[in-house]
């Protein structure tokens, strides 16, 4: 089974916060404006939104990673 996960390059991320606006189901901002990602695989119905959040990151810090999970 493969799972889709969001990863952040923490050095690139400068807390613009667009990702949390575009994917509030999985991302919220901490008290300083930096994203906190829910530690769950991305549900299928949210995949397009996750894709859009990744494409909208002004500093290209957000990425989607597919991991194979053996069950």
């Amino acid at each position: 089974m493969s799972e889709l996960h969001l990863t952040i390059d923490r050095i690139k991320c400068d807390g613009r916060g667009l990702c949390a606006e575009l994917l509030p189901e999985l991302i919220h901002l901490d008290d300083w404006g930096y994203p906190i990602i829910a530690p769950v695989p991305i549900p299928n119905q949210l995949a397009p939104h996750a894709q859009r959040a990744v494409a909208s990151c002004p500093v290209l810090a957000l990425a989607l990673k597919r991991t194979i999970r053996s069950k």
Binding site: R16, G17, L18, E21, L22, S56, P58
Partner: peptide, 18 residues
């Protein structure tokens, strides 16, 4: 405006960049 992170309650940041 996007680079400066201008934002209000009715105007989220993704609107500026979009």
């Amino acid at each position: 405006l996007s680079a400066l992170r201008v934002q209000t309650a009715g105007w989220p940041r993704f609107l500026t960049t979009g």
